[in-house]
Simulated scan of single mutants.
Amino acid sequence: MRKMKVAVIGLGVMGQTHARIYTEHAGVELAAVYDIYQPHARQMAEKYRTKAAGSLEELFGMEELDAVSICTSDDQHYELAMLACKHGKHVLMEKPLATDLKEAKAIVEQAKASGIKMMVGHTLRWDPRYYHARQTVASGQLGSPLHLYARRNNSYQNGLRLKGRTSVLMFLGVHDIDAIEWVTGDRIVEVYTVEVRNRLNEFNVGDAAVTTFKLASGAVGSYETSWVMPDQYYELDAKLDIVGTEGAVNINIVNQNIQRHTEGRFTYPDTMYGMEMYGRLTGIMKEELTSFILAVTEDAPLPIMVEEAYRAVQIATCMEQSLQTGLPVIVPSSID
């Protein structure tokens, strides 16, 4: 059976994770890698025993190439997605779909017109905790959801690293925006957002945003997200609580049921996203890439459609509009 041939574009932390998982999958050949910084691309090509494309034109010109993983900074997604559509290459893209709503809409339209498979890596759809919460809601065991609380707070070093190239709502918020609608099976219809600016003000971005929202069912919720957590705090602090008429479900990803005390502090090792066991990566990222591989090689259904990834960008854009106007914003019910 012919192996699926894939290339990875952008070789930061996520790009290297994609490259490693592909090389460890028996049904996949990592045909090429590309990074704008060519010495790094050549180094990674040697590490993963593949070739470093000298340009995007060279990479997309590889006729045998089936698919690409786009792992670049968010503001480059549009150009690369359009190139993939033009050349008929299937796409796995790190979230968000785009940071501009018009560009996100254009990607959706071009992906559908080209006939390629495009999946955006909203990782919570492969997180067993969020998947279980979705199953619990869908089974009716909670009754009707009444109110929700979600948060995703990241370290100051992440906010500092991005230097204002995107907002906290686009970088982190899209995760939970998508998860709230996916887990509840409901639609966010109205948002009202406020923010604080202090530590990252030099980059003209907010430190933290808090949103109240309404769902189509009448349920209400609150969402907070930040990227200014102190250096000695957890790398990521995320939570989802849903209270219904008959029950409740609570997710808290900080406590992984294992804690470690080293170098004078307690830490909670990651056991879900990129856990290495017996020399191979396992966990959420492996499951995400496996879903994409199966969609390309076996025509399996995608766990997230590109229109749903657009929806997350659309709602985040409404939250940013609320920040600008100081008023609640109605979320459109369709792609505008």
Score class of each variant (00 low, 15 high):
L11P: 05
G143E: 04
L294V: 00
M305T: 13
S226A: 14
E224W: 01
S167R: 03
R129W: 13
S144H: 13
D176I: 11
T211A: 05
E235L: 11
R311K: 04
L146P: 00
I9F: 10
M4V: 13
I293Q: 00
R161A: 15
V205H: 06
A52W: 04
N257Y: 10
V194D: 11
F60V: 05
E246T: 09
A41R: 06
A19P: 04
M82T: 06
G221T: 08
N250F: 11
S222Q: 12
I107A: 11
A138K: 14
F203R: 07
W227R: 09
Y130E: 02
E29M: 01
V168F: 03
D336G: 13
I177M: 06
H25G: 00
Q135H: 09
R187D: 09
A219Q: 02
A300L: 00
H87D: 07
Q314V: 03
K117I: 12
E181D: 02
D270H: 09
L56N: 00
Q135G: 10
M229D: 08
N198F: 04
Y48T: 01
I242M: 12
I330S: 12
Q256W: 03
E298D: 12
V28W: 00
I258F: 10
Y233F: 15
T262K: 15
T225K: 08
H77K: 10
D186F: 09
R280E: 13
F60E: 06
I330Y: 00
T50F: 05
